[in-house]
Simulated scan of single mutants.
Amino acid sequence: MAVMDFARYKEINDQRLNYREMEDANVVSYYRNTGCGDGYRIYLKVNSQSTVEDASYTTTGCGFGIVALAMATEYAKGKTMEELRSLTPETLETLFEFPERRKNYPESAVAALKKAVEDWENGGGVPSEKRVTKAKAMDLLSAQGHLKEAQLSSVMLEKENFNGVDFSGADLHNAFLQNSSFVGANFSGANLKASFFNGADLRNANFRGADLRWAKLAGANIEGADFTDALYDIGTRVDQKQMHIFEVMKKAGKDLYLNPTDKE
């Protein structure tokens, strides 16, 4: 049985190896781990010879997910897209060996990287015109004082203070919003499909009529938050003690979530 290198595991997590947004990436690919619901984003910069010059990732996942994605993006550097097509979890584990009960993490990281290759081949992933960085979102907030109806699909707004900010009607689907503070923020009517509020402070926030299908609120503080008429589905993840919010929300079917605008 493999013995995990805990010292290296901690080092990779502490350094956040390859964890960053990449503004000049050729492809930004989104992958959702259906097993745990975590979101992965792979960034690849590919040259004219189809070789990866740089690779990075972002994730809402745990330490094992971080290590697996760090190894996947590290492996990708200098490889051709053809070489990445044949990558296996076993090959990835030559860089870091996972415990038997955590083999699903390299498997998911390989699947995410291969999806990025597919997106590069067919022009998929997050379109360049729809890529919104944290810096751009913060500049917009500074300029107009709100983010009402803003197009912020897939944006990363982690560990920031958005207390009282108006996000009403904004498009925040696939957004990474974990560990930020949204006390008293207004998300009424916002598109929050597949967004991540893990560990966020949502006290007294307004989610009336928002779309929270496949959203993840695990560990969030929702005291006083209003979820009246917000949409949820089987993929909406909350803590056991938060289940009461579904009493005022509206259940929506999976067919409503799977529409052409949600491919990324």
Rank of each mutant, 00 (worst) to 15 (best):
L141D: 06
A215S: 15
A220C: 03
Y31S: 00
D262P: 02
D255W: 14
T228F: 14
D229C: 11
S180Q: 04
E93V: 06
A230V: 08
A218S: 14
F246G: 02
S108P: 04
T133D: 02
G65P: 06
A111I: 02
V155I: 05
N18Y: 07
E11I: 13
L17G: 01
K250L: 09
N47M: 09
L95M: 13
N186L: 14
D255F: 13
D38M: 05
E223V: 10
E223D: 12
R41F: 14
A150M: 15
D233C: 15
V117G: 08
K159N: 11
A150G: 10
K103V: 09
W120M: 15
D171T: 15
F207H: 02
I222T: 00
Y232N: 03
Y232E: 07
D201C: 00
A185T: 03
R203W: 10
G224H: 10
V46S: 05
D226L: 13
S142G: 12
L147E: 04
E107L: 13
R20D: 03
G61C: 07
C62A: 07
V126M: 12
E21S: 00
V117C: 08
S188M: 07
I222Q: 01
A112T: 07
E223G: 07
M249Q: 05
L147G: 03
D139N: 12
V3W: 08
F187R: 02
G189W: 12
L202T: 00
N186K: 15
R101P: 00
T228G: 05
Y232V: 08
N191A: 14
A200T: 04
E83Q: 14
G164E: 09
S153C: 15
F207W: 04
G253R: 07
E160L: 12
A70N: 06
N26C: 12
A68Y: 05
T94W: 08
P89W: 06
Q49H: 14
L17H: 06
V117M: 06
L92V: 05
P260I: 00
L44K: 04
L44S: 09
E223H: 08
Y19M: 07
L44H: 07
Y19G: 00
T34N: 13
E160V: 01
E264Q: 10
N174V: 10
G189D: 11
A194N: 15
G209Y: 01
A170F: 09
K251N: 05
F167Y: 09
K79Q: 11
D119F: 11
P106L: 13
G39C: 09
A220G: 01
L87P: 01
W214N: 15
L87A: 04
N174I: 13
E129I: 14
Y31Q: 00
M22H: 01
G209F: 08
L202I: 00
G219P: 09
K114L: 10
K250P: 01
L258G: 03
Q242A: 11
D54R: 04
Q240L: 15
L17C: 06
G125Q: 03
L212E: 04
F197M: 13
V165S: 04
L17P: 06
